[in-house]
Amino acid sequence: MSRVGKYPVVVPSGVTVNLNGQDLSVKGKLGEKALRVADDIGVRVEGDKLWVEPRNETKRARMMWGTTRAIVANMVKGVSEGFTINLDINGVGYRAAAQGQVLNLQLGYSHDINYQVPQGVTIKTEKPTSISVTGSDKQVVGQVAAEIRAFRGPEPYKGKGVKYSTETILRKEGKKK
């Protein structure tokens, strides 16, 4: 039995859920998301709660049960609150600047990196050494943050590079005489 799937998804006020057969659409203040639910899974709306349940006891239905419930919960949270990932930049001369839909990164290479930000994602740089990635789609926000981090991942000796603000870098001891 799915530990995730058996709990309902609570729909906050200001979010509307439309269910048309297997097509589920969620609309809120931050946008609109749509999902085609697998045929093995049934979704029903009761008041301000969304219930996800398997239609049969096949292995695929049990696998998709928790997955579908998690995706639906992320859709509801995304259109109501949104998702944010914060990145920190460490290193002498390493900095970032957001100009419209382009993020300019100086990460110790011989050239600047201009990262084109996809639609639906906003990037803010409060300080030159901190980046905030915000959007309504959890997968896209995580992918953008991972791509920015991949330009210069943190190294274990001095901790230089781009890292998630919640990430802890395991530091290594340097050379000994």
Rank of each mutant, 00 (worst) to 15 (best):
P12S: 07
Q22N: 13
V102S: 08
P128Y: 15
P128M: 12
R95V: 02
T134S: 12
Q143I: 00
K29W: 08
N56M: 01
Q116K: 12
A73K: 09
A97M: 10
I131P: 02
G93I: 07
I113M: 07
A34K: 15
T134D: 15
N56G: 07
A150I: 02
Q101L: 11
A38M: 03
G100C: 03
L107M: 13
N114F: 14
S132Q: 14
N90H: 09
T122H: 05
K33T: 00
V92G: 00
R36H: 13
I85P: 04
L35M: 14
S110E: 06
S132T: 10
T58D: 10
V140A: 13
E46S: 11
W51S: 06
G142Y: 08
R60A: 15
P118F: 02
S80C: 03
S13G: 09
R44K: 14
E57V: 06
S13A: 13
G93C: 06
L107T: 10
E81V: 12
A145T: 02
K33L: 05
V37K: 09
S110Y: 07
G93H: 04
L30S: 04
N20W: 06
H111M: 10
V17L: 11
A34Y: 08
V117R: 03
E57R: 15
I71L: 14
R149A: 08
G82W: 03
K77F: 06
V102F: 06
M64Q: 11
D40I: 03
S132L: 05
G93Q: 05
V121D: 14
G120K: 08
G142W: 10
K138W: 09
Q99Y: 07
V9H: 02
V11T: 09
A70I: 02
V45L: 15
A96R: 00
A150D: 14
A73W: 04
V72C: 09
Q106N: 10
A34T: 09
R36M: 11
N18L: 12
S25C: 05
K77R: 14
V141Y: 12
A96K: 01
F83S: 07
Q143C: 05
T84K: 13
V140Q: 15
G100W: 04
G93T: 09
N20A: 13
S80N: 11
G93A: 06
E46K: 11
V15F: 04
K77G: 07
V11H: 00
D88F: 07
V15Y: 00
T68R: 08
L35C: 02
Q139V: 08
N20E: 13
Y109I: 00
Q143A: 12
W51Y: 15
R149S: 06
E57I: 08
E81W: 06
A96S: 12
I113P: 00
T122N: 14
Q116W: 03
L24F: 01
V92D: 14
T67S: 14
I131K: 05
V79C: 09
G82I: 06
D40K: 11
G142A: 08
N104Q: 13
W51M: 08
K29C: 12
R36I: 06
N114W: 07
S13C: 03
I113V: 13
G108P: 06
K29R: 14
L30H: 08
G47Q: 10
S130K: 13
V43E: 00
V76P: 01
F83N: 04
Q106T: 12
F151T: 10
G153L: 11
T84V: 14
L107F: 11
V10E: 15
Q101Y: 07
G78M: 09
F151G: 01
G14I: 03
V15G: 01
S110F: 06
